[in-house]
């Protein structure tokens, strides 16, 4: 098969406390997660609220607001909380979006910096009347 391009993230490893073979003791699990202080309580966190999604949306917001002609929208990957996204404009220029853990987001088209600042600011501004 030839290489594929997609918005996939690397497989998540060790998501559960023990292993991927899960011993099904229904609500005992719930209680165990709570009472044992298992850090994997995060597994029940509201779905979708990942930093990767946040950065992707904010990066796209910047690109659209600034009228960038997009051939391939940025595809994002995460590594230890750092998010990096790569795309292409219709004239072949590279689009990059990067955001270190808890750091600001930088959106570039080629060498030109379109945005450098907090991710949440972009989300908030996009959600309010201009």
């Amino acid at each position: 098969m030839s290489p594929t391009s997609s918005g996939l993230r690397p497989p998540v490893r060790g998501k559960w406390c023990q292993s991927t073979t899960f011993h099904a003791r229904p609500l005992v699990v719930l209680v165990a997660l709570v009472t044992a202080g298992c850090s994997q309580v995060a597994a029940v966190a509201p779905v979708g609220g990942t930093r990767e999604a946040l950065v992707r949306f904010a990066g796209n917001d910047v690109l659209v607001v600034q009228g960038v002609s997009i051939l391939a929208a940025p595809v994002c990957t995460s590594d230890a909380g750092a998010v990096t996204c790569a795309g292409t404009t219709t004239d072949g220029t590279a689009i990059t979006v990067s955001a270190p853990p808890d750091g600001p987001m930088t959106v570039r088209v080629g060498d030109r910096v379109l945005y450098d600042g907090p991710v949440q600011t972009v989300i908030d501004e996009a959600g309010r009347p201009s």
Partner: peptide, 20 residues
């Protein structure tokens, strides 16, 4: 669905692909 957000991703191989 599942993630409670609007999201559209492209999946491609060569000059083909589909939309998620």
């Amino acid at each position: 669905g599942h993630t409670h957000l609007n999201q559209i991703l492209a999946h491609t191989r060569g000059d083909r692909g589909f939309w998620e």
